[in-house]
Design a protein around this nucleic acid. Sequence first.
DNA 1: ATAGATGCAAATGTTTTGCAGGAAA
DNA 2: TTTCCTGCAAAACATTTGCATCTAT
Lengths: 143, 143
Amino acid sequence: MAHELEHKALAQYLDSQNLKHTKQRDVILAVFLEAKGHITGEDLYRRVRAKHKNIGQTTVYRTMKLLCDAGLATEHNFNDGATRYEIKHEHHDHLVCVRCGKIIEFQCEKIEEAQKIVAQDYRFLILRHRHELYGHCENCRER
Amino acid sequence: MAHELEHKALAQYLDSQNLKHTKQRDVILAVFLEAKGHITGEDLYRRVRAKHKNIGQTTVYRTMKLLCDAGLATEHNFNDGATRYEIKHEHHDHLVCVRCGKIIEFQCEKIEEAQKIVAQDYRFLILRHRHELYGHCENCRER
DNA sequence: ATAGATGCAAATGTTTTGCAGGAAA
DNA sequence: TTTCCTGCAAAACATTTGCATCTAT
């Protein structure tokens, strides 16, 4: 099975919370992992549906929430009216192309540092942040 | 009249676009300016309603869109399911307290610089950005 | 006179909830 | 056999749209 590690992680989480191991959860996790990233709830549902006609939208949303809790997924919102899910991995922010929709991840230590200083100045405790740069990607900027 | 400058700016914009000067638009602008900042569409509607029972929600939303186009307001979204409007002024980002809801504005030149460098690295043209730090404000962090 | 604005009600679109039936432990 | 899940339909919710009417120019 592909993505064995992730399926194992899910199983462990389910056990630890006394939740049940169902085939829907497996299927949704598999489809989510195949999609590779930044997929909307709707889109994910469509893909799940394509292979498993009897899985409901509700279950997709509930399962994605579960995967977030389990630390396998994270939620994002890029102002297009849909929640997107990505596979959880090291911290990063996003460049979002408003023409083609491409989403590029970036990391910038200078920004992280500067944020900490800002927070200190305001005696603010940062729990999370959201940082997105919207514009035209390399391919779209010439148009 | 309070906020004469802004009302004049609105009048100019309306003229320039061949749009009409209505009392609803004046009232909504006045209530928006009084509110001072980060007010949701819903809340704004409630406040407008309190004084002018015959102004519809639709008109409030349409007018806020207009004020954004006119450069008097800007839209923001802090992940609480509502669009907020603030009086347009110099560029800044936000600290959002997830306990009390307080919104603090900040400016950080280092972050702005670093963003430009990131964009260069990806040959990306930034049109706008969104940067929010979520956490506990000075008053709420002790709790 | 006429382009544009208004307000109601209904639609929108994504996500969530109630609930009765089903599956896992 | 009990606790948890599922899927459907309906609700939620902020915002937008259709449309007939009204108003500023």
